[in-house]
Design a binder for these strands. Structure first.
Lengths: 154, 154
DNA sequence: ACTGAAATTGGTTAGTT
DNA sequence: AACTAACCAATTTCAGT
């Protein structure tokens, strides 16, 4: 399909600042018309570069105060099965297949200690799970979900 | 103004589906007027429940194909300094202060092996860093940045 | 707090260069 | 691929309840 140029990256960068920013505002800033921005954003969605638009919610303010990073080792060759099970769980926000001591790293958020404990115990009991290593998050220092694109623009 | 009720959670849930969804659409779905949705969203922003709106970008399609989860141990009492340095780095998307073998877990994304190698080496050289453990991400199984709020709504 | 309507601003489409 | 221009839709404000 089509190629991503600097105008596209600039639009992405504007949306990173505020995804509800109006097309008109972006257009003015980048010196093109609204229709151009409109078409470019549609192109980026079609290409799958923009997957969706989401609110960044402070889940802590909704009571989700407990975060755990969990390392999991699967029983021989069963990594994919374990990952699938983890990915289905609504409290799990990230599942990474990784190299090293663990096969999988999962990030999960809970409203109370009981839910977290139950979750960890259940994972440990899963048929294909060899061992788990739970790291309780004491403080979220950074969580942007984004990469600064400025190095690609100039 | 203060407390978060079920209407607020329903609005958040609608925005999780699509943060650029129009106030009119949300209003119709929830059986109230646009102005109500408008005021509620502003309340949620003011309360810090909604921090911002962002596009979910497929960074892999922009060339950021290398992801690493890095465990870091800081030298005696210097955890905060290490975290601060990590948080300042543009390629680092998450920094968690954790319990266990490591003091800090960082997630970072790169465009090439050299950048990643350089990054890991630089971290290892930092004054306050005792040791690092790099887990290369082979596959992103899940990365939603969101928690399903339905358990709080009904 | 919510509504309803007015005023303002934004999104979308078609046609043109 | 981007612009103009028109049209329609959505956002924001505010008086009234």
């Amino acid at each position: 399909m089509e190629k991503i140029d600097k105008m596209d990256l600039k639009i992405l960068s504007e949306l990173q600042e505020d995804a509800r920013k109006s097309l008109r505002e972006i257009a003015e800033k980048l010196g093109v018309t609204e229709a151009t921005i409109y078409n470019r954003i549609n192109k980026l969605k079609k290409l799958g570069v923009i997957e969706r638009f989401i609110p960044v919610i402070n889940y802590s303010k909704l009571g989700y105060d407990l975060i755990a990073v969990i390392g999991i080792t699967a029983k021989g060759g069963k990594v994919v099965e374990v990952e699938k099970l983890l990915a289905e769980m609504p409290n799990v926000t990230a599942v990474y297949d990784v190299t090293g001591e663990f096969d999988v790293i999962a990030v999960s958020k809970f409203r109370d200690r009981d839910s977290l404990n139950e979750f960890v115990k259940n994972i440990g009991k899963l048929e294909f799970v060899e061992k788990t290593y739970t790291m309780l998050v004491l403080n979220v220092v950074k969580e942007t979900h984004m990469i600064d694109l400025s190095e690609l623009i100039e």
